[in-house]
């Protein structure tokens, strides 16, 4: 099966700065992959290479088999830049109409209406960009990225300017996109957002991938906690499979069991460990 996005041995140098050092990454159809890493890790550079804004120094990136930056690759992609702006004099509807023409979309007013509805801007279709809040502009940016029904979506910090309600809207949107078979590479600093929606996580630091996998697989077991009538009992060496036995033994021993928690490292802890930073 052809990957929606495939990066092999991607390197990028800006003069003496080595922004990417041989990154490998794949996003399958309908898969939502979170790209994590500290500032300057090379995440945005990788995303920009994938959409043809930046040329790699070495390696290869393909979108549905087509070289990144080529017209077929661009036709398959939707992209939301980390730092973007739309002309202030255009209305939301005009922004989308322009991108429909550039993307060759024949969706017309129906597509524009659906996209604005999807991002919660249906009431603001005629509002000029300069009269929109940063959050509204970001939602318009997401709608713009979806023009022409792309098969692969590159989102660079799509929720950075959104309030919690706006983030929830985007989360729901990402889940719907996954159901429609659209691959998504989500570059974000918001670990909770990534943990909630992503199928896989790739952690980059210093231009290299230092951890990758499903969020559940990346986390380490940290024991089992059981609430009993005398308080909370901890079993640090226990794993998920040990929980039924522990409960049975406690009940047989005359304890009343009120709750059981399987403990594991959070994505934040995994991330901090991977990038070599301490939580404190």
């Amino acid at each position: 099966m052809t990957s929606a996005l495939a990066a092999h041995g991607v390197e990028k140098r800006y003069g003496a700065v080595h922004a990417l050092r041989g990154v490998d990454l794949e996003v399958d159809e309908g898969e939502l992959v979170g790209l994590l890493g500290p500032n300057g890790a090379g995440k945005s550079t990788l995303v920009k290479i994938a959409c043809g804004l930046v040329r790699p120094s070495a390696g290869r990136v393909t979108v549905y088999g087509a070289a990144a930056g080529s017209p077929p690759a661009r036709r398959s992609l939707g992209y939301l830049a980390e730092l973007f702006r739309f002309p202030g004099w255009q209305s939301a509807d005009e922004v989308l109409r322009l991108h429909q023409r550039l993307a060759g979309s024949d969706g017309g007013a129906r597509e524009r209406g659906e996209l604005l509805e999807l991002v919660g801007l249906a009431e603001a279709r005629d509002r000029k960009v300069e009269q929109m809040s940063k959050g509204m502009q970001q939602r318009l940016g997401i709608a713009q990225a979806l023009v022409g029904s792309p098969r692969m979506l590159l989102l660079d910090e799509p929720t950075s300017a959104l309030d919690p309600a706006g983030r929830a809207v985007v989360r729901g949107l990402l889940e719907r996109l996954r159901e429609r078979g659209i691959g998504v590479l989500l570059n974000s600093h918001l670990l909770n957002e990534v943990a909630l929606v992503c199928d896989r996580v790739v952690i980059i630091t210093g231009g290299s991938v230092v951890a990758a996998g499903r969020p559940d697989d990346l986390s380490q077991p940290r024991g089992v906690e059981v609430d009993v009538n005398g308080g909370t009992r901890r079993f640090p060496a226990a794993r998920r499979d040990d929980a039924p036995r522990i409960v049975r033994e406690l009940v047989d021993g005359g304890e009343q069991v009120y709750g059981v928690r399987i403990l594991a490292t959070t994505l934040e802890e995994v991330y901090l460990e991977a990038v070599g930073a301490s939580p404190g």
Binding site: L53, F86, H99
Partner: peptide, 10 residues
Amino acid sequence: GLLQPIVVRP
């Protein structure tokens, strides 16, 4: 940031 959304189009 005005150019990027346009030049990524085909």
